[in-house]
Structure formats: structure tokens, C-alpha cells
């Protein structure tokens, strides 16, 4: 049996569009997931127990349920409540909700790993809690967390393939479509795999370059 990629002549544009959709899904998933993740982490280390409880509950529920179920709930399940999202919006929402929970744990661990003396020194100079976080704790935590954040980014890119199940035309969805249209069971999937790999590999190279730059000096 030999591989035949001749269908690409006809479908390459579709794949390219799929890659563009995957990129957008991942980008917004990473961006919004990071922002919400930071808030969740700050809630979880807050002195107010209600915030801590809310954050913990959220994180446990999201981590404890499959993302596929979350995607379906957001896209199909919320319609009766008047929330009708496009496939793309639902995809971003699911990725954000999911990655925020994981990011929160990464951030929390990163913040807790910073020596208590750092916050004490900042507070003893008269800096507020917020200033201390922004200028002293988070910059140091961020540097330590970069490998874990990179890991999470890559997971988000790969998890975005689950959004194909609600019909968002990203890489995986395109591969399934082409499988049927070109009567090829394997090759379109190989193309999809290669595209995901290029995306994640580039991302991981970019992140290690950033890591090296921060490590220097």
C-alpha cells in the first residue's frame, strides 16, 4: 500500500483555512484562559474564603469533567437558556473555560513558590498588596512557570481539535471532511497530524527561546 496525497491539489486551501481556524481558536483559548486563570489563582490564594471556595469548586469541576462534554454543553446545552453561540464562539468559550482551570493551578503553584520574604520586603517598603503582586511576585513567578505555561499552551492547541465535533471548520474537521470527499481514510489524518505538529513544535520553540531570553542576564 502506498500513500497518495494527490487530493491535496484540490483541498489544500481548505486545510489552510482549517489551520487558520485552529490558530484563532488556540490563540483566544490561550489568551483568555491565561487571563481568567490568573484571576482564579488570585481568588484561590485570597484571604476571603468565599473567593477561595468559588475558585476551588470551579477548578475541580472543570478538571474533573471531559472537555468533550463541556464543548457539547456550551454549544447545544445552553440553547434552551437563550444562549446561542456560533460554533467558533462556543469553541473559544470551551477552550477558555477549560484552560483557565489548568492555568489557575499553574499560576497558584508559581505564586506560592516565591519566597515569602519577597512579599514582606515589598510590603515593608509601603507597597500595596496589588503593587507587590504586579511588580515583585508575578514577574518572578512567571519566569518559573514558563515551562508549565508552555505545556498548557500546547495542550490547548491539541484540545482545540475537540471543537471539530460541533462542526467548527478547524484542522480536524477539515480532515474528516476530506476523508469522506476524497475516499481516503488515512492520508487526510496524516496531513492533520503534521499540521498540529508544526503548530505545537513552533510554539514550543518560541517558548524555549523566550525562556532562554529571560534566563539570561
Amino acid at each position: 500500500m502506498s500513500l497518495d496525497f494527490s487530493f491535496m491539489a484540490k483541498y489544500w486551501e481548505m486545510f489552510l483555512y482549517g489551520a487558520w481556524v485552529t490558530l484563532q481558536l488556540s490563540f483566544f483559548g490561550v489568551l483568555l484562559g491565561t487571563i481568567f486563570g490568573i484571576f482564579l489563582a488570585l481568588m484561590k490564594i485570597s484571604k476571603v474564603w468565599v473567593l477561595r471556595a468559588l475558585s476551588s469548586t470551579y477548578i475541580e469541576i472543570i478538571r474533573g469533567t471531559p472537555m468533550l462534554v463541556q464543548v457539547f454543553i456550551i454549544y447545544f446545552g445552553l440553547v434552551p437558556f437563550g444562549l446561542e453561540l456560533t460554533k467558533f464562539q462556543a469553541g473559544i468559550a470551551a477552550l477558555t473555560i477549560n484552560s483557565a482551570a489548568y492555568m489557575a493551578e499553574v499560576f497558584r503553584a508559581g505564586i506560592n513558590a516565591i519566597d515569602k520574604g519577597q512579599a514582606e520586603a515589598a510590603r515593608s517598603l509601603g507597597m500595596s498588596h496589588g503593587m507587590t503582586l504586579r511588580h515583585i511576585i508575578l514577574p518572578q513567578a512567571f519566569r518559573n512557570m514558563l515551562p508549565a505555561i508552555g505545556n498548557e499552551f500546547i495542550i490547548i492547541v491539541k484540545d482545540s481539535s475537540l471543537v471539530s465535533t460541533i462542526g467548527a471548520a478547524e484542522i480536524m474537521y477539515t480532515a474528516r471532511t476530506v476523508q469522506g470527499a476524497a475516499f481516503k481514510p488515512l492520508e487526510p489524518l496524516l496531513v492533520a497530524a503534521a499540521m498540529y505538529f508544526v503548530l505545537t513544535f513552533t510554539l514550543s520553540k518560541l517558548l524555549s527561546a523566550l525562556e532562554r531570553r529571560l534566563q539570561k542576564r
Binding site: 519566597d115 520574604g117 520586603a121 510590603r123 515593608s124 517598603l125 509601603g126
Partner: peptide, 18 residues
């Protein structure tokens, strides 16, 4: 925060911002 600005502190472990 205002009061602490008038009251410096030096720690055993220095606690410089690395």
C-alpha cells in the same frame, strides 16, 4: 502602607528583588 513608608525594614535574608 503609608505608615510603612516611614518605617523601613532590613531582613536577615536580605530579600532583595532578584
Amino acid at each position: 502602607n503609608r505608615i510603612r513608608q516611614r518605617m523601613g525594614m532590613v531582613f536577615q535574608q536580605f530579600n532583595l528583588f532578584p
